[in-house]
Amino acid sequence: MSYAIIGFGNIGQALAKAFARKGMEVSVATTRDPESFASAAAAIGRTVIPTKLADAVKADTTFLAVRFEQHPDVAKALPTWQGKTIVDVTNAYGVPPEKLGGQPSSRFVAQAFSGARLVKGFNHLPAAVLDQDPAVHGGRRVVFLASDDDAAAAKIGSLAENLGFAPIKLGGLSEGGLLVHARGNSWGQLIFKDLIKFDG
Rank of each mutant, 00 (worst) to 15 (best):
residue 1 M to P: 12
residue 1 M to F: 00
residue 6 I to T: 01
residue 11 I to P: 07
residue 12 G to E: 07
residue 14 A to V: 03
residue 16 A to Q: 01
residue 16 A to D: 06
residue 17 K to S: 04
residue 18 A to I: 02
residue 19 F to S: 07
residue 31 T to F: 08
residue 33 D to F: 04
residue 33 D to R: 07
residue 34 P to S: 01
residue 39 S to P: 00
residue 43 A to M: 01
residue 43 A to T: 00
residue 44 I to R: 03
residue 45 G to N: 04
residue 45 G to T: 00
residue 47 T to I: 03
residue 47 T to C: 12
residue 51 T to A: 03
residue 51 T to V: 01
residue 52 K to F: 06
residue 59 A to F: 02
residue 60 D to S: 09
residue 61 T to F: 02
residue 68 F to L: 02
residue 68 F to W: 07
residue 69 E to S: 10
residue 70 Q to Y: 07
residue 71 H to G: 01
residue 71 H to Q: 05
residue 72 P to F: 03
residue 72 P to T: 03
residue 73 D to G: 12
residue 75 A to K: 02
residue 78 L to Q: 14
residue 78 L to A: 10
residue 80 T to P: 04
residue 80 T to C: 02
residue 80 T to M: 07
residue 81 W to D: 10
residue 81 W to Q: 12
residue 84 K to T: 13
residue 85 T to N: 08
residue 85 T to R: 13
residue 89 V to K: 02
residue 100 L to D: 11
residue 101 G to Y: 02
residue 104 P to D: 09
residue 105 S to P: 14
residue 107 R to M: 15
residue 109 V to P: 14
residue 110 A to L: 05
residue 111 Q to V: 11
residue 112 A to L: 08
residue 112 A to T: 05
residue 112 A to Q: 11
residue 112 A to K: 10
residue 114 S to C: 08
residue 115 G to A: 01
residue 117 R to D: 07
residue 120 K to Q: 08
residue 124 H to A: 04
residue 124 H to K: 11
residue 124 H to P: 14
residue 129 V to Y: 01
residue 130 L to G: 10
residue 131 D to I: 10
residue 131 D to R: 06
residue 131 D to Y: 05
residue 131 D to Q: 11
residue 132 Q to M: 13
residue 135 A to R: 15
residue 137 H to V: 03
residue 137 H to K: 15
residue 138 G to V: 01
residue 143 V to Y: 11
residue 143 V to P: 10
residue 144 F to M: 11
residue 145 L to F: 13
residue 146 A to K: 14
residue 148 D to M: 08
residue 149 D to M: 05
residue 150 D to R: 11
residue 150 D to Y: 08
residue 151 A to G: 12
residue 152 A to M: 09
residue 153 A to E: 12
residue 153 A to Y: 08
residue 153 A to W: 05
residue 154 A to I: 01
residue 155 K to A: 15
residue 155 K to S: 15
residue 155 K to D: 15
residue 156 I to R: 08
residue 157 G to A: 05
residue 157 G to E: 05
residue 158 S to G: 14
residue 158 S to Y: 00
residue 158 S to F: 03
residue 161 E to N: 09
residue 164 G to C: 03
residue 165 F to Y: 13
residue 166 A to I: 11
residue 174 S to R: 15
residue 174 S to D: 15
residue 176 G to P: 12
residue 176 G to T: 14
residue 177 G to I: 09
residue 177 G to V: 10
residue 177 G to P: 10
residue 182 A to V: 03
residue 186 S to I: 05
residue 188 G to F: 13
residue 189 Q to G: 14
residue 189 Q to F: 08
residue 195 L to M: 14
residue 195 L to G: 05
residue 196 I to E: 10
residue 199 D to P: 06
residue 199 D to N: 15
residue 200 G to N: 13
